[in-house]
Design a protein around this nucleic acid. Structure first.
Lengths: 209, 209
DNA sequence: TAGATTGTTAATCGATTAACAATC
DNA sequence: TAGATTGTTAATCGATTAACAATC
């Protein structure tokens, strides 16, 4: 547990800082001031400085921030210097799409196993990873040091699966199922509710008529 | 344009209310008080009443809220009583997964066209929808009254495509590309940045060590 | 040293929660 | 009518922005 709890509002902005700093780095830019970053990212310079200072003084007065250093620091804060072992539960279209998306691996999120209840696809391979029956899941998680389970199953099964996995040492759920998971405090849940997102878009389109 | 602007924090909660009310409705429950809903949803009753009263007095003192009515009202607020015509730009794994996900259509979001630069898949069909070349996109959007474009292309092409579509009467982007789109004020953008989401999860796992 | 820009405190703004009068 | 629960105002809390002293 951290000393002071940092708000999810701040955490939610870190990946975006990380992305922009990565782009600056790729352009060979060495230093950036909060004001310059503010102009590019369209957030206040004040917010940038406040956000970063939650984690320590990464800048230098009169100079600004070193792009490469800051990029590295934020990466570390986000845990991207460590490898994460993932399993996918539910080998439907969405599950397959995620397995096939290379960029997660680039960031250290490695898919180790895929599980599905459908006997017809069990034994087949997706990007070299065998689809296994659900019965093997618990043992697999324990034996392969899996820390993240990606739930791409219909909501009906998700609660039960999450419960089962919570007992096997899973540290976090990336939940695409359209239910709210209730898990112990030491397990994290990140929801991706696609239909909620689409509804928000629908509202905003309508409200700007 | 609405009279008073309602905050995105409130809008972001509406789909979740909608989901829980739908479940109550399916269970045949006719009335619910803000306190009961509060217990189920784990938010304060005060917040529920405040949120709903942004849109009008849907409840009745001494009684509570009629589940079916409230469900319908929130659906209307979210624009789910109207049909939306969508195109997918980028027929990769993720694009295909979205087209194959039936639940969007159930809510009135209908995929009308799929576009991709890859000549090899142009002409093939995904769930009965032909994959078309990018050159046909602009005309297709105009002729088929498309209001939402789903961007499931790599970030390199996304900005340009968005610009092109903005000129064809598109009302909103559901953006899965890992860039920030800059479009005119009257066009809405809803971002789904999957890798950002995964990074947040990574942070939260790490911070709870 | 002078100029620039951070780190940090103070002020403002907005969102959440509490309280209660209105009313069904 | 009495009890329940909303709608709404007031109080609190947290997040954002502004300001400026510290310092490179």
């Amino acid at each position: 547990m951290e000393d002071r709890e940092i708000s999810q509002a701040v955490i939610g902005r870190l990946p975006r800082y990380f992305r922009y700093l990565g782009e600056l780095k790729d352009q060979g830019i060495e230093k950036v001031s909060s004001q310059e970053l503010s102009d590019i990212m369209r957030v206040t310079a004040s917010q940038i400085r406040q956000d970063l200072n939650n984690f320590g003084g990464f800048g230098q007065q009169g100079y600004g921030y070193n792009v490469g250093d800051l990029y590295g620091e934020i990466g570390k804060i986000l845990g991207l210097h460590k490898e994460h072992n993932l399993i996918i539960v539910g080998a439907g279209h969405l599950g397959q799409a995620l397995v096939n998306y290379m960029n997660f691996e680039r960031r250290g999120f490695i898919f180790r196993g895929i599980f599905d209840i459908d006997k017809k696809i069990q034994g087949t391979q997706i990007r070299g990873i065998t689809v296994r029956p659900m019965e093997e899941m618990a043992a697999f998680v324990r034996e392969n040091d899996i820390d993240i389970a990606v739930l791409t199953i219909p909501k009906t099964g998700a609660v039960e699966v999450a419960e089962q996995l919570a007992g096997c040492g899973i540290r976090g759920f990336w939940n695409f199922a359209h239910v709210d998971l209730h898990v112990p405090d030491n397990i994290q849940v990140e929801n991706v509710h696609l239909s909620d997102s689409l509804m928000k878009l629908s509202y905003n389109i309508l409200s700007h008529d």
